[in-house]
Design a protein around this nucleic acid. Sequence first.
DNA 1: CTTCTTACA
DNA 2: TGTAAGAA
Length: 127
Amino acid sequence: MADSVRRSMPLFSMGIVQKLTGLTARQIRYYEENDLIHPERSEGNRRVFSFNDVDRLLDIKSLLDEGVNLAGIRRVLSEKPLEANRPVEKKAISDAELMKYLKSELVQAGKFGKTSLIQGELSRFFR
DNA sequence: CTTCTTACA
DNA sequence: TGTAAGAA
């Protein structure tokens, strides 16, 4: 049960989540307004998503493609207890794929002189 | 440059 | 949902 800690650790920026989920910032913010997700906020008021948030967003995306409206989605994962049973096989995104995106982000960050937040958080995965 | 909020097409 | 504005 120490995994839940890591899974709810805030470390993804809006940009990364957009790439990870394929959703637009507009959609992500809208879902938050509707209490479908509750990302943390950084000092500069920037949203910081956890692995759980991303996973949740992917579920929302699936439901949306199935034609479920926000009310329905909220009903399906309304206040979904974070400690729910979820088969490893059913994970929406593989760790390998996640690493792939994370790494590309790290590389891009390297092209610039400073990328305080992102680079610092991502380093956890390559340590 | 990235992300935030608000407001309108 | 997309996008324009202005701020941070």
